[in-house]
């Protein structure tokens, strides 16, 4: 465990020395602060709009961080050959892989925590409402980021950062539209058998990332639906299962890869 922690800590340190990390955070904070300037921000719905837009921006920030960090860490270390120094120590590649994953998740979690504080304070100052329940939405954003990091890292075992970013973005888009688009493509009898088969495989294999999106519910103070412990546990199970599968495949492939 010590080696996994050391690898994870190295990711945190590395991220804190990357300007892009601060740029993404600053950009997100500025956009959140600018949300009240939106023309549709009518009196009465301002607070809901602020919460929904802020959570949407936070989701995008988490996506960008997860994809950038997940896609670049292994290829960068391979290209710079710092991998030779680290993996010649008595550590397994599994420890390296899990450590780097853990580090990225910690960085994303840290960024989400800071964003949470910013949104919380902003809502409190502007509307006088203390709304800690938003943490549930940020938690599910973190769960989705974990899945995305594991996808990006799996791709990065073989591909360049640019390809990894594109593959992960594709996964993200398909994961969000599968409940609607893929389901219709799979069940619509007007489609040819090949389209139905491919849609069916994608529908059952890919996770429904839209299930992890509770931003709207939380933004509207759970007036329509409430997100209870059972629902959260279900979402944790969903994200954990896909993350574990993707990490296992990625770790296995990385452990057999020539460096």
């Amino acid at each position: 465990m010590n080696a996994v922690a050391a690898f994870a800590w190295s990711v945190v340190q590395d991220s804190l020395h990357r300007k892009v990390f601060y740029a993404i955070l600053a950009f997100t904070f500025i956009l959140i602060l600018l949300v009240p300037l939106l023309p549709s921000a009518d009196i009465g719905v301002q607070i809901d709009l602020l919460r929904e837009a802020s959570l949407g921006l936070t989701s995008i920030m988490a996506f960008v961080l997860a994809v950038i960090l997940g896609s670049t860490i292994i290829p960068r270390e391979r290209e710079k050959r710092t991998l030779y120094n680290t993996l010649s120590k008595p550590v397994s590649r599994w420890q390296y892989y899990l450590g780097k994953f853990t580090g990225i998740v910690v960085v994303v979690a840290g960024a989400l925590l800071m964003t949470y504080v910013v949104i919380l304070l902003f809502v409190l100052i502007k509307f006088g409402v203390f709304n800690p329940g938003m943490a549930k939405a940020l938690f599910t954003i973190l769960l989705e980021a974990m899945v995305l990091v594991s996808v990006a890292m799996l791709a990065s075992v073989f591909y360049s950062p640019l390809v990894c970013v594109m593959l992960t973005a594709l996964f993200y888009v398909v994961g969000h539209v599968k409940g609607d688009f893929l389901y219709r493509a799979m069940t619509d009898s007007a489609n040819d058998p090949a389209t139905r088969a491919i849609s069916g495989v994608a529908y059952y294999v890919l996770p429904n990332l839209e299930r992890l999106n509770i931003n709207e519910t939380i933004a509207h103070s759970e007036r329509m639906f409430s997100v209870g412990a059972t629902e959260l546990l279900l979402l944790i199970g969903l994200a954990a299962a896909f993350t574990a599968i993707l990490l296992f495949v990625g770790g296995y492939l990385f452990s057999r890869r020539d460096l």
Binding site: R81, T82, Y84, S88
Partner: peptide, 13 residues
């Protein structure tokens, strides 16, 4: 064991 790779490289920060 200890290993020195050819032209070692490190994180400069």
């Amino acid at each position: 064991m200890g290993f020195l790779p050819e032209q070692p490289y490190f994180d400069f920060y």
